[in-house]
Amino acid sequence: MSAAFDTHTEGTVAVSTGEARDFFALLKPRVMSLVILTALTGMATAPGSVHPVLAAAALLAIAVGAGASGCLNMWYDADIDALMSRTAKRPIPSGRILRSEALAFGLTLSVGAVLVLGLVANMLAAGLLAFTIFFYAVVYSMWLKRSTPQNIVIGGAAGAFPPMIGEAVVTGHLGWHSLVLFAIIFLWTPPHFWALALVKSGDYARAGIPMMPNVAGPAATRRQIVLYSLLMAPVAVLPALMGFGGLIYLVASVTTGLAMIVLAFRVWRRTEGEPAVKAAYSLFGFSIFYLFLLFAVLLAENGLGLMVSLPKVFG
């Protein structure tokens, strides 16, 4: 692996110019905020309860673990990040943080987060967090991302694990609640990222990343976006049918799921020029709102007592 971002002349020592905000940027705070929400929802929907102090400590450990995996991802991807306009200003390719510093920072946070979660929760939760960090940093970043157009599909599992970790914190085991939440995030990931990839395919081509539009072509990518959206929307309704989502969630999941499908078909139909770019950006932006809304409603219903119960269909 290249050490291009740690180069220095003979007799000198490379020194980082990064500030605290640069190290915080290594943690991918926007991704970390989604992990906090989904993990907290996993805790809230789990059957059982945990002391609030332990829950807060566990959530902090999960957040730090997520940030650590993002940091390790930026450490490994510094070479290709420098080639893409979307990522060139990140702390490592811009030269504010040394690659070696990012590696040490990420590893330290990883070990600390797993140890803390094991102490305040249980070994299953800690083991799942460790596996999530490994999966994102090694399986996805080092292998899948640069080798297969299915990188987002398989690698999406890393972002889907937090609800399972949250349930494990509360119960010490895994159940259908968190598995359904895992499935929602897993099926959401391809249409979310492929919508952006349609617009940024030139960036990915320069970096040599085999994203779906660059390998299978834009038309095939659009069809896949529609397919995954059609699969995701009914799965997202399952929490209401299984009894851990209420009337508010049912309405939110059905209406926004239909909106996701409409936007996906719009991406499929608009294939050229500015309309195609706008359609892809619209789906990408709405998909973020969609996932945040679903988990925020579930959290409000289960954590804030806003549940309006529905007859349980199964589960």
Rank of each mutant, 00 (worst) to 15 (best):
P191M: 10
T221A: 12
M212V: 11
M232T: 07
K200I: 04
G175V: 05
P234D: 13
I225D: 02
N214I: 10
A219I: 14
P213H: 13
I184C: 06
S229P: 02
Y228C: 05
N214T: 06
L187C: 05
Y228A: 04
V199W: 15
F193N: 00
I209N: 01
A236Y: 06
T189R: 13
I184D: 04
L174Y: 10
R222A: 07
H173P: 01
W176K: 03
P210Y: 09
N214R: 10
D203A: 05
W194D: 01
L174F: 13
S178C: 08
A220C: 13
L181N: 04
W194Y: 12
L179R: 10
I209F: 08
A195F: 12
H177I: 02
L227Q: 12
L231P: 00
A195P: 03
A220N: 13
M232L: 14
V237R: 08
K200F: 14
F186K: 04
L181Y: 11
A236T: 06
A183D: 05
V237N: 01
A195Q: 07
A205F: 10
Q224I: 08
M211G: 06
A195L: 06
T221P: 07
M211R: 06
I185N: 01
A205W: 02
A216P: 02
M212S: 03
F186E: 03
T189I: 14
T189M: 09
F186L: 12
L196T: 11
M211P: 02
Y228V: 08
M232E: 12
H173N: 05
P210R: 12
G172F: 09
L196Q: 04
N214G: 11
I185P: 00
A207L: 10
A205L: 13
L181R: 08
P234Q: 12
A216V: 08
L230A: 12
W188L: 06
S178D: 03
T221Y: 15
L187I: 06
A207E: 02
G175D: 04
T221E: 12
G172N: 07
R206T: 09
G208D: 06
S229H: 06
M211V: 12
V199A: 08
A219P: 00
I185C: 03
M212P: 00
H173V: 03
W188Q: 05
A233K: 05
S229L: 07
S178A: 15
S201L: 10
W194M: 04
G217H: 13
S201H: 15
A236I: 07
L198T: 03
R223H: 15
R222V: 08
G175N: 04
L227I: 15
Y228S: 08
I185E: 00
F193A: 03
A183L: 14
Y228H: 13
N214P: 01
H177C: 02
A197M: 10
L174C: 03
G175A: 07
G172V: 03
V215C: 04
F193G: 00
G175M: 05
G172T: 02
L230N: 10
P210Q: 11
T189H: 11
K200P: 00
A197T: 07
A236P: 00
G175C: 04
V235S: 01
V180S: 01
L181P: 01
W188P: 02
I184W: 13
I225A: 11
S229C: 09
L196E: 05
V180K: 01
F186N: 00
W194F: 14
W194A: 04
V199L: 14
Y204F: 15
